[in-house]
Amino acid sequence: MGKNFAGSRNFGYDRLAAGLVIALAMSACNSTEQGHVKEVTGHLPDLSFSLSSDEGQPVTAKTYEGKVLLMYFGFTHCREECPISMARLTRVMHLLGEDADRAHILFVTVDPTRDGPRELRRYLAQFDLEQATGLTGTPDEIGGLAKRYRNAFRPHFPAGGEGGIMHGDAVYIFDTQGRARLLATSGDPEETLAEDLRDLLPS
């Protein structure tokens, strides 16, 4: 039906509007930055949370002040994305070399009923990483943090079952003052990520 209407020319506006829209759509295809992790400065809120660390200690964003933070939402029973993402982040930390001491990974569980501090500590121990902490809390606390960063997680309707939890592969990167700066994904090469992280470290 639409095609019949498209053929009629009661107005010249249709061609004008269509032309403008196509031009805009085409220009956008080339506008993504190449060779850099997606910048999100000013679009996502500053880091703020109050959770339990894998040592069982209460921690807040203040605990990690002065470090460049990489926050990732995952869960220890995940068989697909999480191990790959954590392995990638481990390699990024190795690429950072000495600078890695000034960066820290926060692994926030989206399966808080199964992932307590002990499970998180055991899980993170598999990776050759010193600069990583697992964070857990109540479903509402985790839900609040995930919502703050627009990560798909709803505390009231958790998807059950092994590997049944859906989650994104976003790595939220905060500068030393806790401001959200970059949004990395599994598509970003580790070298690029390491390079962009170095730019966030105060010299």
Partner: peptide, 9 residues
């Protein structure tokens, strides 16, 4: 009618 083609495109 004019709003149809842009949406189709």
């Amino acid at each position: 009618l004019a709003i149809i083609p842009p949406q189709i495109v």
